[in-house]
Computed example of a mutant assay.
Amino acid sequence: MDKRWNLIHYSKTYVRDIYPFRRSVSPQLNLVHMLPEKGQELIQKQVFSRKLEEVGRVLFLISLTQHMPAVHKQSHVSLLQEDLLRLPSFPRTAIDAEFSLVNEPQGKELFGLDTLHKVLWIKLLEEMFLGMPSEYPWGDEMMLFLNVFNGALLLHPEDSSLIRQYTATAINTAVHFNHLFSLSGYQWILPTMLQVYADYESDPLLRQGIEFCCQQFYILHRKPFIMQLFASVAPLLEFTTSTSTGLSKGVSAQCLFDLLISLEGETKDALDALDEAIKLCVTVVAYAPESFRRCGKHIAEASRILHIFSRQLFV
């Protein structure tokens, strides 16, 4: 236990989250003997309190950002971004989940609080993104923020409130950073969306949410989105074996076909999404035949789409 704060240190605890990097400060830890049941109870209470504090801080930042005067909002968002990037615990604490404690007493409450925690982090990212200039020169730091975004979906994909907030934030971010997403922005979020879409085929609400989100992406950017979709799904299509958990390691051709079909909307072939997808595969092969890896992947994608499409015609 920590002598200074009386906190239990266990496998997911980092001393540097409590003690700063200073020469005059050194961690003071004591080895305390206690029953395993008592230790688990104290750990759960500690995690619950820490998660509750984190929820309060995120709510405060969301409220502060929303009520910031327009003339000061951009500078406030820039300062918030810099502060988050300087934190040694970011983005780890934002996507940390204590699923090992869910089966303990008050496990349901802890699980619900963790879900709320992830929803609020997505909301905070949305407020931060929308407060930045649309032509902001993003670098590698963009992935740190999107790790929170993608991690929340992977941890709680069956929560309807999180799916709603996730899809809304994804669409708003793509619209706001229009130029960035037309070039490469979709490749930062599509692999996670595709993997979740394939792993939870029995969840119609989740799949409809992802299909609606991708449909809006397609309406917004058309061909650039389709190209980034193929680039994101290509490595996932190569691994389709099942694991011991029952979830596939990759995305099946049927899932890709279902997603492409959903882009057509309610009316039959309204946007010609499926035809355009096949044409783009052929175009890449025709204009870059020297790239064996690229051509091979797009030929495989086109063949899978055509195979499933031909079966649909005769059903």
Rank of each mutant, 00 (worst) to 15 (best):
L7C: 06
L146W: 05
G296D: 09
H307S: 08
G209E: 04
L247C: 11
D140C: 07
G296N: 13
G139Y: 03
E135H: 11
Q165F: 14
P157W: 00
P289I: 02
P36M: 04
L52S: 10
F149S: 02
T65K: 06
Y166V: 01
D275P: 03
D203L: 10
P235E: 07
H307E: 12
F60Q: 10
Q208H: 14
P224R: 01
S78A: 10
L113V: 04
P224E: 04
L155S: 07
T267H: 15
L274C: 01
E238F: 08
S75F: 12
D203H: 10
M128Q: 03
Q106H: 14
A270P: 02
I261T: 05
L29S: 00
A234T: 02
G112S: 15
G139L: 07
T283Q: 14
R4H: 10
Q215I: 07
R304D: 15
R293F: 10
L229F: 05
Q81D: 07
L52M: 14
P157M: 02
F129W: 04
E158I: 10
R86Q: 09
E201C: 08
V315L: 12
A174I: 01
F292I: 14
F292R: 10
T173Q: 03
F309P: 01
F60L: 12
E201D: 12
R294E: 02
G56P: 04
F217C: 00
R4K: 12
Y166I: 00
H72T: 08
C255A: 15
E126C: 07
H221A: 04
H72K: 11
L237S: 03
S202W: 13
E104W: 12
V315N: 12
A288P: 07
D275C: 14
R57E: 11
T267M: 13
K12E: 09
E54W: 09
K268Y: 15
I308F: 08
K118N: 05
K45L: 15
E127N: 10
H72V: 08
I210Y: 05
L52T: 09
L154K: 11
R222H: 11
S184H: 12
L87P: 07
H67S: 11
E135D: 14
I171A: 03
E264S: 05
P133T: 03
R304P: 07
S78G: 08
T93P: 06
A70Q: 15
